[in-house]
Design a binder for these strands. Structure first.
Lengths: 173, 173
DNA sequence: CACCTATAATTAGCCTCCTAATCACTTGGA
DNA sequence: TCCAAGTGATTAGGAGGCTAATTATAGGTG
């Protein structure tokens, strides 16, 4: 078996990029393509690692983010606001809140100002869950970036932000 | 209208990180936490942008990656090999192949060497699909990273690779 | 040779996310 | 005032991931 992917899982190589480009006779820069592909692979990998991480606490990434967002806003927020803050659709928020409510980490209460609306409320149990997981959670977050110096982290944040801007190239037009 | 990404959504701030840490009296470095959170947010964002991108061609990220992997290996590979190469479960490959087979981009043939196994084969139509999308695909990939100079891309690849290593901190123990 | 375990693939069931359609309520204008 | 348009939330249905359980075959060993 000729094999060029030592790790195999999802980490594309420069050779792969070159092969693909030459196959179609395209003049794109292989390194640029590699950066894009690696970023995609890393994103997928991190997504999975994140799910595994949050699963320790009986949560998922989406559920954790929703709880954290609630706590960061005095413990209550409407589904629409949550959707906007988390960058997901309202339908997704409905699903997340359904699950969290089932587990007693959150409650729904009809909105006073707007008869159409709800308010999602962090319960004592939800707040406790966040407290319980905080030490380990932040410890692992920090450990994840421990391989970079403070300066490198600053550089990375800058480069990443510019790449995030560039992501619209995938969706525009 | 689902989701615009107006501002701040999915892009956590340093202040947020600081608030969270101080709420629990933790001594972690806010900047480190910020890097981790930003990377997660960027990964999610890129994942969505990628899906939108591939949807133009009637594919998804997973389906595209499977086709590309096939093409890169002479047009055939077993589901297990595909799962390993793509970094997903075999069950996921089964689902992806089901969809691709429905669209006629791929076929299954029983393996000759191993009576338990299959071989997934890229059809002419599948190869054509890859050819059709290549120019636009690689163009967009390149455009995504156009905000970075060649040197910056090199730096980014290095930093990203080290962060990817650190991701095991989320899943270990 | 028969058995027991390991492996290939699929199936079933769950979760997250999406879009589109629906229902309920608000609000602004004729 | 009442109706039309807009907005909040949910529902329905689809896709891609996962794990665990099932089915079929391969292979080594008593």
């Amino acid at each position: 078996m000729a094999q060029q992917h030592p790790a195999g899982n999802g980490a594309p190589s420069l050779d792969q990029a070159r092969r693909q480009l030459s196959r179609y006779g395209l003049a794109a820069d292989p390194q640029a393509v590699l950066v894009a592909a690696r970023l995609m692979a890393a994103g997928a990998r991190l997504g999975q690692a994140g799910e595994a991480h949050f699963a320790r606490f009986g949560l998922s990434t989406g559920r954790y983010r929703l709880l954290a967002e609630l706590e960061d806003h005095g413990g209550e927020k409407s589904p629409s606001q949550l959707a906007a803050a988390l960058g997901v659709s309202r339908a997704t928020v409905t699903g997340l809140v359904d699950g969290l409510e089932r587990d007693g980490l959150v409650t729904r209460r009809p909105s006073v100002e707007d008869g159409r609306g709800n308010v999602v409320i962090l319960t004592a149990r939800g707040a406790q869950r966040l407290r319980d997981m905080a030490p380990e959670h932040f410890d692992r977050m920090q450990a994840m970036v421990a391989g970079l110096s403070v300066e490198e982290r600053t550089v990375f944040l800058d480069l990443l932000a510019r790449l995030v801007e560039g992501m619209s190239a995938l969706t525009d037009g």
